[in-house]
């Protein structure tokens, strides 16, 4: 739903669901996903419906994704970092076997 109108200044590479995308170093994870043409980032917990970032300011919790293995992070509140591994989510948190 978006296109970037700027030539990249400083780019980082992140992996999204196994695919490598480029993003501006100053972007949030949510902005990076939107800029790469991704809209739905998860399936909702209760009804399994597709959901996408809605507010981009930390309010709506629609942009929850897994970042570097940590589930349910707000993509709009986390700046991208080079090498970050991001995955979309389906439903509720899965339990980590063995814990910490």
């Amino acid at each position: 739903m978006f296109r970037s109108i700027e030539s990249p200044k400083s780019r980082v590479r992140v992996i999204v669901d196994g695919r490598e995308i480029e993003a501006d170093v100053a972007a949030s994870v949510a902005a990076a996903l939107l800029g790469a043409g991704m809209t739905a980032v998860r399936r909702s917990v209760v009804g399994g419906e597709p959901r996408a970032p809605y507010c981009l300011m930390g309010i709506c919790f629609e942009c929850l994704v897994t970042i570097d293995g940590v589930q349910n992070r707000q993509a709009c509140m986390v700046p991208v970092r080079d090498g970050m591994v991001i995955s979309s989510q389906r439903g509720a948190r899965t339990m980590e076997v063995g814990g910490q």
């Binding site: 589930q71 339990m95 076997v97 063995g98 814990g99 910490q100």
Partner: peptide, 9 residues
């Protein structure tokens, strides 16, 4: 009791 809950919000 359940160490796997550590990261649960």
């Amino acid at each position: 009791t359940f160490p796997q809950l550590a990261n649960v919000n």
